[in-house]
Design a protein around this nucleic acid. Sequence first.
DNA 1: CGCAGGATTGATATTACTCAACCGTGGTGG
DNA 2: CCACCACGGTTGAGTAATATCAATCCTGCG
Lengths: 177, 177
Amino acid sequence: MTIFQSGDTGGILPKVLTGAVMLYTIAEDGHRQIVDLAGPGDLLHFEGATGVVDCYAEALTDCQIAYFPATALLANSETAEYVIEQMRNRIALERRHIKMMGRKSATDRLADFMDIMADCLGADTDTIPLPLTRQQIADFTGLTLETVSRTFAKWEREQRLTRIDAVTYRRSEPLAA
Amino acid sequence: MTIFQSGDTGGILPKVLTGAVMLYTIAEDGHRQIVDLAGPGDLLHFEGATGVVDCYAEALTDCQIAYFPATALLANSETAEYVIEQMRNRIALERRHIKMMGRKSATDRLADFMDIMADCLGADTDTIPLPLTRQQIADFTGLTLETVSRTFAKWEREQRLTRIDAVTYRRSEPLAA
DNA sequence: CGCAGGATTGATATTACTCAACCGTGGTGG
DNA sequence: CCACCACGGTTGAGTAATATCAATCCTGCG
């Protein structure tokens, strides 16, 4: 379940081969904020031997993780370029995340969230795997689980969203109101 | 004022020597979201010659910017390490940003925001430069400018925060309620 | 002097949070 | 086999907080 914890030392870079992983932090007041999502091909952190990770990584599904020594990866220019590309991807995703959280309405936030999930974990655009509990979605979006639940219920009533199975939804129309 | 725009090609990495810069995106609905803040020593993006930046960079204060060719920077292992370190810093800041935006109350959000400003632009911990308009603070935190204004007014009434000059505040006590 | 841009303040409405009850399911143990 | 429990999810009612709309203030500048 847990892949690494805040405080663990770096030096070895974990790469997701299969499955999905969430990264989160715990605030002083106990509030959990999910700060990142990773799927196949993604590196989970970038700390060298002198670094320490400051978040928790937990598997959302069954996962295979490979571990690479940071020094070796950065020594070779080809793999170093891959690491840099990965970091660029992380920055781009964090910024989408920020953009999503800047939305003032819960509906817009969750519509953006579904876009992100589709891009991160989705095969085709409108079939969206959702291996997260309502609480986890809330901790990702900065909403409450009740608001998440109500918004999904509304979308299902409006036929914009249909549940395929326990962890998959299909969206028919743009979700944003 | 504008340092680069969404759509500009990469290849040359801008580094802030002095001053402060904001990075922002514009959503389809016109909403502006500030996604990053950079101060002296920070690189503003990491796009190689094949990349394109997807946000806008605008100076918040008078600025000096130096430009480095990406290929040269990455060829040398010493400067490459600096670039990676910079990317790590960006990721860490974006995550603090996300964490801040996960706070449910405006007061908590803005207290976190002040912490971030202190770390990004501050000399000592409690003297906080704030070269942003209320609207820009709102676009950073995901609040409205009225809420920002009211919260600052409340803090000043409570003597937790005092304005030193047009762009500097001093905080006396923890701002979080 | 008048104007423009940012900032403040007020009144109101909406929206999401909070608290709480209840449902459904899967697992465990008697 | 069934009772019970734990956990996630749904739904409802009420409240508190912030967005919204609008008027006014302040300051620097032309």
